[in-house]
Design a binder for these strands. Structure first.
Lengths: 222, 222
DNA sequence: AGTAAAATTTAAGGAAATTTTAAGAATTGT
DNA sequence: ACAATTCTTAAAATTTCCTTAAATTTTACT
């Protein structure tokens, strides 16, 4: 479950948000001032909902503080829609800006987007194209169909999907998946790749997911 | 430079956006219908600005199509702010939603947020003229087009590009690329150079990149 | 201009790397 | 211990890449 920190001085709104997020299966931390927010914040927090009009430190300072230390997505909520202020906040590192009053469902939708983007997300789901790889229960979905992968196949695909731009050399992949056994036959890797490709192809014949970089290794296809 | 694909049927707005993005140092591709957008879309596109009201395929279908195949952030622009539609789009994979008319600076700010999310900051890129050679994923871009090089071709071009002023003798290049095999036919190198030249010429016929230094070797042309 | 040496291009054969297939070994669960 | 699954290995088939050789073009020099 993902944790969201609400920083909002108005008790009514804070409670309302807290309720809303709980109902949507988020764990909630509530702070009623900027300084309190910074204190409460910890490594478990996956996203921050930040009100602008705060006693004590103002929103800008809070963002600056948080972004400096942590890499957590921040969604700013505010009644005012002063465009210059908005831009300042984006410059400081805000990831989204939503003006009050907002639609609750839209807020949830935007929260989901930013949780999905980040590496900070506790979510154990790695997505790439139409593949969803859940590291907590080792399940894989491709093109809305279930894919059954063995352990090594799963690990291999996971490594490739976590950095889809990067080319992984073969020895690289051996290290990451097999754990530095140079004893293994070079072909073992190739066979595993071949099996993964076949299984994915069964779910979505139109897309090629894994690209071979000749004489180097493999990567996810763009 | 990052590339943004605009999919917007209203010519005035499309032009305006194009101008705006160009002024902010983005490379721009314009499409005037959804189907055109899908056609134009290529590996270089880093973000898509998508208008909802399109002739032919509508926005939902476009998003579905694009997200299925590529892993590119999509910002939806629309005049209507129907909340249900908004939520549908987020569900389909839209990364942001901005209602027209919007403030230009805000659009730029939101674009930056989403480009920042996806980027890997590892800069292993060697540049020379309009060639970009990425040593981490072994990709080469020339004149904004992808160039597919084999391993030896890549290594060879890399050596030349790392010291564009220097003249490399042939035995020098053999050492650096092949690893001191004096057995190899002298001509092997020439053939490789020839192939690289051809591939680069396909991307940019106007420029000659590699200069031959008669009876000595090669270097990058000034 | 003519000539020889060097460089470029082209095509083809062979070398090297990858993919696939299949079967036996190792591992896991019951 | 047995059955089932998974992993590894080996070998054949395939694909891609490299090298070689020959023909052509360019350059340097007389």
């Amino acid at each position: 479950m993902e944790t969201i920190l609400i920083i909002e001085d108005d008790k009514n709104i804070n409670d309302m948000l807290s309720q809303l997020l709980s109902n949507n299966n988020y764990k909630v931390l509530s702070a009623f001032s900027g300084t309190e927010g910074i204190l409460i914040h910890n490594e478990q927090v996956n996203l921050i909902l930040l009100d602008l009009m705060l006693p004590g430190k103002n929103g800008e300072e809070i963002i600056e503080d948080l972004k400096q230390k942590y890499n957590v997505p921040v969604i700013v909520m505010s009644a005012i829609s002063n465009i210059d202020k908005k831009l300042d906040l984006f410059n400081l590192g805000a990831d989204d800006y939503i003006t009050k009053p907002f639609n609750n469902k839209e807020l949830i939708a935007r929260i989901k987007v930013h949780l999905k983007n980040g590496k900070h997300s506790k979510s154990t789901v790695i997505k790439y194209k139409d593949i969803e790889l859940n590291t907590s229960d080792f399940s894989v979905i491709c093109n809305n169909k279930n894919v059954v992968l063995t352990k090594n196949e799963f690990e291999l695909l996971k490594v490739l999907m976590t950095n889809p731009e990067q080319v992984f050399t073969k020895s690289n992949l051996f290290d990451l998946v097999w754990g530095n056994e140079d004893s293994a036959d070079d072909n073992t890797l190739n066979v595993h790749i071949s099996r993964i490709r076949n299984k994915l192809k069964e779910c979505n014949p139109k897309v090629e997911y894994i690209e071979t970089v000749w004489s180097i290794g493999y990567k996810m296809k763009k």
